[in-house]
């Protein structure tokens, strides 16, 4: 089933990307460089959403001891790291023509870098323990404590004066972006979201196979 979701999401993403890159008008301030939003915005949005999902899974694991939650955290961490790296990289590429620099130690960029390091720390913490159950518990605690960084990233553009612009799309206000740019952007977010969800499902399956390989049901399934 998820294969179809993956291909459908990939189609939506490529369609939105082609629409946004080739068929929307130039931005009157940034010119053509704005077109990187079709990668940067979905990646930035998902880098935080994945961490939030990991924090929810951690709470579920610590309270109800649902093993699947622990597997999900493990599956999401490397994908979260990859997506955060994409957000940082695409932001740097966008920064060169827009700000004249590829890197600036401002609040939004620094807090996103912290998120990236957090993802790497989570992966290395889990890998350093041979006792999986203990590692799952410690990982869950670290994810919950590290969640403090998510509101900081979200609010960084409001709390500090930064080079980074404030959000163009919010749940409460009318988008400040032109509809001709907005629709392919929404499409690219949906497509990217679907692709990442499918990758998480595949990665979770790998985790389940690795951790439950001695169980009889796995042998029957395989």
């Amino acid at each position: 089933m998820y294969k179809y979701i993956f291909y459908f999401s990939l189609f939506i993403y490529i369609f939105s990307l082609v629409w946004g890159v080739l068929f929307t008008q130039e931005d009157f301030v940034q010119g053509n460089s704005f077109r990187i939003i079709y990668l940067h915005v979905p990646a930035s949005f998902l880098s935080q959403s994945i961490y939030a999902a990991m924090a929810i899974s951690s709470v579920i694991y610590l309270i109800w001891r649902v093993k699947l939650s622990a597997y999900l955290i493990l599956a999401m961490a490397p994908i979260g790291a990859l997506v955060t790296f994409l957000a940082l990289f695409s932001g740097s590429v966008w920064g060169i023509p827009t700000w004249g620099t590829w890197w600036q130690w401002d609040a939004r960029i620094t807090s996103t870098l912290i998120l990236f390091i957090m993802y790497l720390g989570l992966i290395s913490l889990h890998n350093s323990f041979s006792n999986h159950e203990k590692a799952d518990k410690l990982l869950s605690w670290l994810v919950i404590v590290g969640f403090v960084n998510i509101p900081i990233i979200k609010k960084s553009v409001d709390w500090w004066s930064t080079l980074h612009q404030s959000a163009s799309i919010t749940l409460t206000d009318k988008p400040t972006i032109d509809p001709s740019m907005l629709y392919p952007l929404i499409g690219s977010i949906i497509g990217f979201f679907g692709i990442v969800i499918c990758l998480i499902i595949i990665s979770s399956k790998v985790q389940i196979f690795k951790r439950e390989k001695t169980k009889s049901w796995i042998k029957d399934y395989v």
Binding site: L115, G121, L125, S128, W141, V145
Partner: peptide, 27 residues
Amino acid sequence: FGSALSLNKGSVLGAIITMPLALPVLI
């Protein structure tokens, strides 16, 4: 907190994984 996480795995691991949390304080 980091030291407790990496209790018997050496303090370096704990320091690395909790260091990002100290960065906002440095800012």
